[in-house]
């Protein structure tokens, strides 16, 4: 396994997390997490429920500005930047449960990031291109309530990709999906990665994580206990213990 906090390869460092921690009252949800992610990488971030994965995501996305430690995104300290300022810099995320704008049509959902991220003109053509990327162009003028669960997941991904992200955090994008639907989402994520987007996949579907990730980082009780090649990490006693118990 590579050294803790180091990403394999020598590409540009996209994200560097240093000593990130978060406390809720007396409870430490996250403690001293270091993580480095390089351009184009596919990182799997795993851990049992309550291990701090979502807290880490929220700290990175700017939802918890009061966290300990620091994030540097493409060399820039994120500090107290608000979530929308981080999104505009190319830091995109999806949510564990799809959170579409329910009063807006599918294409209007895509027009929101296009109109506000400012990286591309918010044209109908560009919005349709984002929807075509997730095979939702045929439902562009439907409302989210008319979509199936997997379509909502794809809409969530399309909205994130409309930001033209440098780094995408896919937070449990496959939770509750069937085998075939997991394959659909995996295909989309691979396509995005091939187009140059660095991806952090937070997932409980181990088949998807091992198939997708070039590297795995494991959080247990708010601490990073492993970071390295998937096969080596999954064979580590600390990881086995976290998932299966002693």
């Amino acid at each position: 396994m590579s050294g803790v906090g180091d990403a394999p390869g020598d590409g540009e460092v996209v994200l560097r997390a240093e000593g990130v921690g978060m406390r809720f009252g007396g409870f430490a949800a996250l403690s001293g997490v270091d993580l480095t992610v390089r351009a184009g990488e596919r990182l799997g971030l795993i851990g049992p429920n309550g291990s701090g994965k979502s807290t880490f995501t929220n700290c990175l996305a700017g939802v918890y500005p009061g966290h300990e430690g620091a994030f540097a995104f493409r060399g820039e300290r994120l500090g107290k930047l608000s979530p929308h300022e981080r999104a505009r810099r190319g830091l995109a995320r999806t949510f564990q449960l799809p959170r579409p704008f329910r009063g807006l049509t599918v294409i209007e959902n895509i027009r929101v990031p296009l109109a506000y991220a400012g990286r591309h003109e918010a044209t109908e053509t560009r919005a349709m291109a984002c929807l075509e990327g997730v095979d939702l162009a045929g439902k562009a003028h439907r409302l989210p309530r008319e979509l199936t669960q997997v379509e909502l997941r794809r809409l969530e991904l399309a909205r994130a990709t409309a930001l033209d992200p440098v780094l995408l955090i896919a937070d449990e994008a496959m939770a509750g999906l069937s085998h075939a639907e997991v394959d659909q989402i995996l295909a989309l994520l691979f396509r995005l990665n091939e187009a140059g987007t660095t991806i952090i996949m937070i997932e409980h579907v181990m088949r998807a994580v091992t198939e997708f990730s070039q590297r795995l980082a494991v959080l247990v009780a708010g601490r990073k206990v492993a970071d390295g090649a998937p096969r080596e990490v999954l064979a580590m006693p600390a990881v086995e213990e976290a998932y299966l118990g002693r």
């Binding site: 979530p83 505009r88 506000y116």
Partner: peptide
């Protein structure tokens, strides 16, 4: 929260 994440 989703609006913020979309750059709004």
């Amino acid at each position: 929260a989703a609006a913020e994440a979309a750059g709004v």
